[in-house]
């Protein structure tokens, strides 16, 4: 008798499970359909993407990097190469191999001039290893061309953030940042 009763209760538990899935079948999707939609801006802003050089306080077109090599020594993956230029302290070559980078932040934290920051390129795509060898000076020039004047910023950190905003705008091909589908708490 006990076994029969247990099995009837078991059948009821199966019905409960079926009810849950049928409710989900007719409730809205939760995923963000990437090329057509992107995640919210605030979700991207604190993402650590590949490194980028920040823009100088005095001259927004130049990097504050002084080629001191501290980041090169600090990096656990040896992915940074900095070559000092002929005149002054500014670097003539600043490459960074993203395929070796573990995004630990040692370089950003050791930089004495705040010349480094994490970008927020969530949608970065590379088709070969060579493409992951990033030339950060060229990248900086690109960004300078896009927006020659720096908006009023106080420190390097928020500076980097504003850069990220323009970047993520450019990356999000859908244009306007669509809102994430079904972010509201589920009715479950």
């Amino acid at each position: 008798m006990r076994a029969i009763w247990d099995n009837i209760k078991g059948l009821y538990s199966l019905l409960v499970g079926m009810k849950i899935t049928i409710v989900f079948l007719f409730s809205p999707r939760k995923t963000v359909h990437y090329p057509r939609k992107v995640v919210e801006r605030e979700n991207v802003e604190n993402y650590r993407g590949p490194l980028e050089l920040t823009r100088g306080k005095k001259d927004p077109a130049k990097t504050p990097c002084i080629s001191c090599q501290l980041c090169v020594k600090a990096c656990p993956g040896n992915c940074i190469t900095v070559v000092k230029g002929k005149e002054g302290k500014a670097p003539s070559l600043w490459t960074y191999d993203f395929s070796y980078c573990c995004l630990c932040g040692a370089c950003v934290e050791t930089c004495p001039t705040g010349a480094l920051a994490f970008s927020h390129r969530v949608y970065m795509v590379a088709k070969s290893r060579e493409e992951l060898l990033l030339d950060l000076l060229a990248d900086l020039d690109d960004r300078v061309k896009k927006s020659p004047q720096l908006e009023a910023k106080t420190d390097a950190k928020s500076d980097a953030k504003s850069e990220a905003k323009t970047d993520s705008k450019a990356d999000a091909k859908a244009g306007a940042p669509a809102k994430k589908d079904g972010e509201e708490p589920s009715p479950a």
Binding site: T21, F24, L25, F26, S27, P28, R29, K30, T31, G182
Partner: peptide, 13 residues
């Protein structure tokens, strides 16, 4: 499609 909808994703798209 049903599997996708039950699992709250769009399925083939």
């Amino acid at each position: 499609k049903a599997a996708g909808f039950i699992q709250r994703r769009p399925g083939p798209y």
